[in-house]
Write a protein that binds this DNA or RNA. Structure first.
Lengths: 219, 219, 219, 219
DNA sequence: GATGAATGAGGATTCATTCAT
DNA sequence: AATGAATGAATCCTCATTCAT
């Protein structure tokens, strides 16, 4: 194949990689059961049977897609493990993740599809990578100024809230932007959303002046 | 069955209604393409063919499910049209929606599935119901105290943020609660989340003391 | 289908039955893995998918074929349970079975295919029907004149020998008749074989004059 | 591997031989259509493609297996060509074959599979080797004491009967031993069967005292 | 309204085989 | 002699849908 052409990156990457790319696109658009092996194969101009030279089957391919897509996120966050999330730090984190998702919006959708389907395809990833990551994220919040205004239980929800706000942007865009008459998931919209999230971050992490705070909690 | 007895509530609802129930459950779990007519039928202990006496086909059934599930939400919000969203008002709205979703978590998932799939199955619903609803929601925010601290563009995103926070809770639960070691989508968790959202509402709607606010917007 | 034509037997039996017939033919010729559902379906002029309205799958169909084919044999033998196998009785049994197999040579081949494949598809049949049948057959031998000239262990083998001689005729015919230059599995050949088996039966069951008998047994 | 070392026995046999071994095992278990090239290859820890360096294809491999397995049998019998089958002689033959099959039970199963499939894969073997072999075997019977008690036609069947009794033991074992509660195809069982066959041989070849003999032939 | 049977289209996967390396 | 990758043809089976009853 690349016998004469020296550059291995030209003409696309290795077949396995190209399959993963196509699969990621389709799985993130249509979910696991909505995606046909045949469609992935034809996207890579390959006979469906050839695909089985690279992956054991649909499920195996799906898992490989999930793992490959999630890996960078884990790296981001692992790298910042042990820090405390001051608003600046948190903003940085948000920026990092939003930038990555701007380039790979598939990830948010994959995650969402997977959660809707029950998360069974990524049980091992959850146990192995997400659990410590989440624990560390919450710990970072706890070490930051958020600690002053949120109870321990709320810190978990606060962490989750950031994920909802980030993932939601990429996932609910088709419906919401249609309802709002905006243009959908453009890079600009994502940048705007990132800036918006920064503001939200400050509001949520910094102590709040309002005296009626936490009234409905009963304490 | 209920041929002579007029009462529609006796012996469960009418077949059509039971089909809708089963379909709602399965569609919200597995999405449109992941759900088989046969499975819906067997859930209602009905021959798949019989289903076609009640609905024109899979797509038609899916739309009916969407419409039926979304209707109450529209009613809630339409009823409160024209108001201004003071924090109290907004909290009430949040409570109302969260209460409804606690009883019908399917809705959030249906919406999410639909958005992931591109929203084509609810184009008409969006145009007919969601558009005015969203416009009104944003207007309500604009009329409230939020107006002081958010630009016009941000108001849209603020509205969207509430939706992300609400929908996210029901959709990302399987993955997040697994990663957090919590128990999943229990009614208690939802109540906690509602209280948390009240606090968030205040933080986001009321003016914020911090002076650095909107710094990153300005540069 | 048979709405206007009163006779239910004309135009072939019910579809399920016709599928079983075709399946029996093909399975007995080519074995389980050598037979394609598609071929069975096309033999009955049916879409392969239709077949799944009648049977759960290939394996289920195969088992149904086995059961249906073996049933008459079990009935034969159960009916004669408890008798003693005098040569006359044994001859009768042989005749009965050979007559049935002459009309249904598939059975012998099915049994043989199944045994070659390890017998896993008929474990339940073996346990439920064949075990008592075999036990009774050996007991019948024991009660007959065979008892004089065969040890207990040999009686089992004697019983098996009859089965080998009967099944072998139907199974090894293609190879043997080709090697002998005879015509194959004609009804006449089967009749001849039956007569031959009668002679063999006498020789094996009646006491034997030869004094060197059982020399090699060491007793 | 054995590129420099000339010795073919070191490190197992040559690859070709190892392929034949694996193929023989699988073909005899599952028949031609039930056996996958891939399975044979993986048994030899070889890429399926490599197999085509040694054989032209599946069919070619199958024929090679058949020929290799049958050859020793032909040698046995050819060596004893022209003799007459006194009971002693016949017993010896039976012993020889049973001993060989005890070590290579595959052969019996291969033959049976092949016959069930119509024998087309060994037409040439049949014509070239089996035909004279069978002719000679029957001639040997004719020259022995069997001649006194069996008609010419019956001699053919007598010869076939020995084959049924021998092959049957190896082929029907799974089903029969399951039905009898015995242990299957152990070497001991085969030895017992050999001894049993010796007794049967005498009974069938030596003249029989019973006066009613051949009664059913005559009427 | 309900059902058994039928079906064309598709869906995942296997298989024997080829070919460049 | 070995292998990774590719492939067309099958293989089993599912799916949404139709139709006669």
């Amino acid at each position: 194949m690349s016998s004469s052409t020296a550059s291995p990156t030209v003409e696309g990457q290795k077949t396995t990689e190209r399959i993963l790319d196509a699969a990621e696109n389709l799985f993130s658009e249509r979910g696991f059961s909505g995606t046909a092996i045949r469609d992935i194969a034809s996207e890579v101009q390959l006979n469906p049977a050839s695909l089985y030279n690279h992956f054991d089957g649909k499920e195996s391919l799906y898992k490989a897609v999930l793992e490959r897509a999630l890996e960078p996120i884990f790296l981001f966050i692992e790298r910042s493990a042990g820090t405390q999330w001051s608003p600046a730090e948190a903003e940085h984190m948000v920026t990092l993740i939003m930038e990555y998702l701007k380039a790979n919006p598939n990830l948010a959708r994959l995650l969402c599809h997977e959660s809707l389907a029950g998360g069974n395809h990524m049980r091992h990833i959850i146990g192995l990578h997400m659990q410590p990551l989440v624990a560390d994220g919450i710990a970072a919040l706890r070490r930051g100024p958020a600690e002053e205004s949120w109870t321990e239980d709320e810190l978990s929800m606060l962490f989750a809230a950031f994920i909802h706000l980030i993932v939601g942007h990429f996932v609910l865009a088709p419906v919401l932007s249609a309802a709002m008459g905006t243009e959908g998931l453009t890079p600009e919209a994502t940048d705007q959303h990132t800036a918006f999230l920064h503001k939200v971050t400050k509001r949520l992490l910094l102590p709040h002046s309002d005296s009626s705070e936490s009234t409905d909690e009963g304490c």
